[in-house]
Each structure stands twice: as structure tokens, then as C-alpha cells.
Simulated assay, not measured.
Amino acid sequence: MNVIWRNSISCVRIRKVPHRYQSGHHPVAPLGTRILTDPAKVFEHNMWDHMQWSKEAAATARKKVEENSAERVLLEEQVDQKTEETMKEFSWDHVKANAANCFSRMHCLTMPEQKNHCRKSAGSADGQSKAGSDFSNLDAKEHRKGPVKTELFPGSSATFRILEVGCGVGNSVFPILNTLQNAPESFLYCCDFASEAVELVKLHLSYRAGQCCAFVHDICDDGSPYPFPDGILDVILLVFVLSSIHPDRMQGVLNRLSKLLKPGGMLLFRDYGRHDQTQLRFKRGHCLSENFYVRGDGTRVYFFTKGEVHNMFCKAGLDEKQNLVDHRLQVNRKRQVKMHRVWVQGKFQKPLHLTQKSSKLVFLPLSHG
């Protein structure tokens, strides 16, 4: 899934990277092109794209949701709203286990050409190319010229800035940094509520403080400041985060994130869709409200429709550029199990021009003249 967002960022970023540093590499099997045409071959791959449900399958999914949501969690048994939403998404042991597995897979196993990556110093970048080496040399030359000027805020000298909300232990952080390694004018911010997870991101060998700022942040707290001013971000990643927030607070979170984007900035969204396998697996007694559930560990999850996503982001002042329901068939080849996955994916842009008329903000289209 990280590949999806790396590709999206590359598309947004491509015009700002010097031509000589743009990669000509393209995946052999682009995401979205793996179509199951022969049911007998269903277990040949782990995931199939654009899977359309039959009327019977859709009806079965609706029935399961009706059954598992018929019994609601009593209000007096629900944890206090603020306490619940500011709890850790996972335990400290889970963070450590995920970190070890994630980092070993992502940076040692999936990059065979980088066998010695984990022995590199903290200042080195993943899969550093010749162009990356050129940038390192340039940086060294700059340091020899004299002391670096004090920044007003982390990344203040950058011309392209990204924020990942809910970064966890860095599953997406380091692939993004790897993508941006040949663009020194770019900067990545990443935040999570779990301080232990953020600390692990900072301790990783690929973390580069000169191009990344990881910080602890509660996106439900309107008064919690960001380490940078409003209106400076080019891209915000909001991936499987909004669903963990109570529906009553989602709009406020999106309104705040919208303020962080610069005109023309893009918010990339991906989250659980209605009738995803995760929703169908819930047992009775875990439903808090319509399409909103609590897991056994106390964390919450909401399942969206495309219409709900459209309404929320538009209310936040963003223009819809993409909003689709991603139906996939995920299979476990060892256990011969098939799982229907439903995700909502969208791209929402902050209008390029704003003007004020009659005390109301009016969005104007970009002039092509």
C-alpha cells in the first residue's frame, strides 16, 4: 500500500524535481492492473484489483452488518469520549514488534541490493544513487562554506513539504524519504499520538533530521500546535487514520488539516469502506453507532461511503479530484482463504485562489489566460 502513496507523491512532486534526477523506473505490474479473469487462478497472487461483487455477495454483506450492529454497546459502558480517542492505538510491545518486523522487511529483505543498509550511519539514505551521492557532496560543500543559518521552524527552507498524519513506526516515512532523497529542497513532517512510535522513527538509521521532522501530536486536539505555520504544506497523507476518530470529531479534524495546506496543496486519503471484510468480521456487542465499532483492544473504526467522504472534504473547503471505492480480493494462499476488501481512496485539493466577497469566502478557478 505504501507504493500507492509513493506513486501519488511522485506525481504531485514530479514537476519540481530537476529532470536529470527523475527516475525512469516503472513497476512491472502497476497497481490497479491485476485483474482476475480466470477464477481457477485466484490463489496465484495475494491481491486482485477491481473486484465487483455479485448481488448475492452484496446482500450477504449487508445482512452481516445488520446482524453485528443490531446489539449496540451501552452508553454507560462506552469509555469517555476524550479518554478513548487519546489512547494509544497499540501497546508498547506491539509497537516494538511492528517496528522490528517493518524495518527488517522494508529495508533489508525487500531491497536485496541494499544488504548493508542497516549498518549505514544515520545520515545515509536508503538505496542512495549516484545522484544522491552528488547531493551529499553538495551538502558537504555547503557546510564547508560556513555555519548553516538557523531555521525559523523545521523545514522552513524547503520548497516542497509533506505531512503524514498517523505515521506509526514509519512504514511509509522511510519509503517516502527514499523517494525524496534526490530532492534536497523537499521536507517530510510525520506525526503520531503514540510517543513511543515517534521515538522509534527518530532512532531509525534512515531518519534524516535535515529532511524529516517526526513529532507527537493529537489531531483531535484543536489547541495542539504544529511545529510549522498554516498554509505551507504541498501534500498531506491521511491513510487509515480518520476511521479511528469518533464521527462527531471527523469534520473538525479535516477543517484543521485543510488550513495547513497551501493553495493548490493536495490531501491524499485512504481508509476503510463500507462492508470491508474488517466490518463483516465484527461480532455482536462491538457496535458503538451506525458503521462505527470498537475492537477488542479498545480502538475504534468507522467504515465510510464515497458520499460521506465527499461531503466532509468539501465542507473542509477542498475540491474533489478523485473519490473512488477500491474493491479488491485479498487471498491467503497458504490457508486458501479469500477476503473482500473495500477501501475509499481520494485526492482533495485546496483551491488555488481565494477572494473575499460580502464577508464570505468565494473560491475562484485558476485563470488559464
Rank of each mutant, 00 (worst) to 15 (best):
V148A: 12
K82W: 13
S359Y: 07
F193G: 04
M106C: 08
V309Y: 00
S186E: 11
R15T: 13
Q128T: 10
M51P: 00
P225W: 03
A59D: 08
H26D: 07
K96P: 02
V239G: 02
F348G: 05
F282N: 00
I245W: 01
F228L: 06
N171A: 12
E290F: 08
A131E: 04
G166E: 04
L180K: 03
N98M: 12
E84A: 14
M1I: 06
H117D: 12
R119G: 08
S10W: 15
A97N: 11
N116Y: 10
E142W: 11
V165D: 00
Y302E: 00
M266A: 05
G298T: 03
H327G: 04
D126W: 08
P18Q: 14
H204Q: 06
S224N: 14
C212I: 01
A209Y: 12
Y207P: 00
N137Q: 10
E77N: 14
S136K: 09
I176T: 13
I4D: 09
M111P: 01
S258I: 11
Q114V: 09
D93A: 14
G170L: 03
E71F: 08
K334A: 12
P225H: 04
E199D: 13
V12T: 15
A316S: 15
S244Q: 08
V344C: 02
E290C: 06
